[in-house]
Write a protein that binds this DNA or RNA. Structure first.
Lengths: 194, 194
DNA sequence: ACGTTTCTTGACCGTTTAGTCCGAATAAGG
DNA sequence: CCTTATTCGGACTAAACGGTCAAGAAACGT
């Protein structure tokens, strides 16, 4: 009963990631947001709530989906090196794709807010910790399987990989030169052979 | 003749870095800015011009000073490995110092603006390129001196070091856990021995 | 003492902001 | 046909925005 929603709410959420990623949260005016989403002012408030509500929704949707992907790569691959390598090459390939890269930058806007926005900070910190642990467990498995050198300090290495992955998004935001990304991934992964 | 300036203009510039770094450029209201600087509204406009003028001044002052430091480390040290190591450890130590770290985050705010602010983008791109070249030349010298493995692709490595250095600032913005920074530097520098 | 410069304060400007309200049109199901 | 739910667009509000202007006080050099 009643009229159906005409727009795909998930699709609009992805458009929101792009707009927020491009201008930043504060830098995005309601007008720019509406233009980017392609929906009417009232539809936004009816469906998502305030500008901030929409930002939080878009952020959570983005982060959890990405992290789930990463965890899937790390836990399903038999070879630990292969799994980690897949994570970075997949990440880089998204960031090199002119269409798919845009929405990633909502993460940058979110990081930007961490120092003065506790809700965003708590959410991101939790996700960061969750991923670091998965990296760590994966490296432990790698040592057991003989893929990872016994000399490696795994907690330090897990932290390095975890934060390096996020650095890629930030790198991509400040350069759209694909070579930079390629070089960054290549050198980062070369650490796996130490 | 006439009354002297009561505030140290350089010091205020540093405070501006901190405020912009904390809230971001758009996120900083004039009121927050004035409170942070500790000067009167009119003094700001008389001395620095508009909010944007102040931001640009603070950014350029920060970036050129930092880059000059890095270049000095890289070019004056006899040992190439030592020079690069110094750059990263010095950078990390600033970011671990509760007082000195704050102003670094103006760089983050500036990166944030790159996609839609050509003036900022051009300035940062130029500085990024300038530093990459110095890293490259330093690595070339390192190969000549036998410090750097001949197998290394120096351009890729230079890019990696250059962007990794900036990643440290971004890392510090999203965590104030000093361990993260330490681990990141340690693993990054381990690449020098490959 | 006398300009000159800066500092501080508060009022003021036009614009933009996020968010609300309302009315008319448009679909869907019963 | 009628009810329900959604869409769109314009009008509207109150607050905040960046920026300007004016006036008086305070500190300097001559």
């Amino acid at each position: 009963m009643g009229r159906n929603k005409e727009f795909d709410t998930k699709l609009v959420l992805h458009k929101a990631m792009e707009v927020f990623g491009h201008y930043g949260y504060e830098g995005t005016s309601l007008k720019q947001l509406l233009d980017g989403l392609g929906i009417a002012r009232q539809s936004l408030y009816d469906t998502y709530g305030t500008k901030r509500d929409l930002f939080i929704s878009a952020l959570k949707h983005y982060v959890t989906a990405k992290s789930d992907d990463v965890i899937s790569y790390l836990t399903t691959s038999n070879s630990v090196k292969q799994g980690i390598s897949d994570v970075f090459y997949e990440g880089a390939s998204v960031l090199k794709d002119e269409n798919r890269r845009k929405e990633c930058f909502i993460l940058y806007s979110a990081f930007d807010r961490m120092p003065h926005d506790t809700e965003v900070a708590e959410f991101l910190t939790k996700d960061l910790k969750r991923l670091e642990d998965v990296f760590y467990e994966t490296l432990v498995r790698g040592q057991k399987q003989g893929e990872i050198n016994q000399r490696q300090e795994l907690r330090a290495f897990a932290r390095y990989l975890n934060y390096s992955r996020h650095s890629m998004t930030q790198l991509a935001k400040i350069t759209n030169d694909p070579k930079v990304l390629d070089d960054y991934v290549k050198v980062t992964l070369s650490n796996l052979d130490n």
